[in-house]
Amino acid sequence: MEVATKKGWNREEMAQNIAHDIPDGSYVNLGIGMPELVANYIPANREVVFHTENGLLGIGPSPAEGQEDDEMINAGKKPVTANKGAAFFHHADSFAMIRGGHIDICVLGAFQISENGDLANWSTGEPKAIPAVGGAMDLVQGVKHVIIITKHTTKDGTPKIVKECSYPLTGTKVVDRIYTDLAIIDVTDKGLFVKEMAPGVDFEALQRKTDAHLNQY
């Protein structure tokens, strides 16, 4: 059966892998969707401050049902709370934090990542699609460490880690590390290096699912 032979990490485990690598004291911006899971797995002995570009540092847990506030939301427009020590600010200050290099880590999704760290994550370039970019282009330029969380391939098995992105770019040479369901991969000046593979995944199989060339440390 397909399920019995399935290899790799699930979404929660991918988020845990990232959370495990976020140092104590970091200021972190999480993108919309799968990146949001990372907040659930920060070890209890670390203090990490989460930033949302719509004007809050110190995002707390989701509010209890019935306690939601329409004026207290994250970038995905989902209700959130504020932790002790939180701060509100306007959009220009928020993006000064991002562009100005004050945020340590951001975690984003991706359509494609190239072997030199180019990222495509805002548009598939279809002519009928309505383009929307949000804060992605600011985040990849300004945040110190840009981390990607993504399935290793698309649903039909097409590699997402490619020699060169075919979709419209979000930024060039911006990605630092990729966490997929199959591996953790560093983007370096010398190319892509596999830092860790999921249980049951071997290097040759990983390379077959990757368009770009992979290196071993």
Partner: peptide, 15 residues
């Protein structure tokens, strides 16, 4: 008509 602007650029253009 649509003029698409990255969010931080939009904020800074306004500021």
């Amino acid at each position: 008509e649509l003029e698409l602007v990255p969010q931080g650029t939009l904020a800074e253009r306004i500021r």
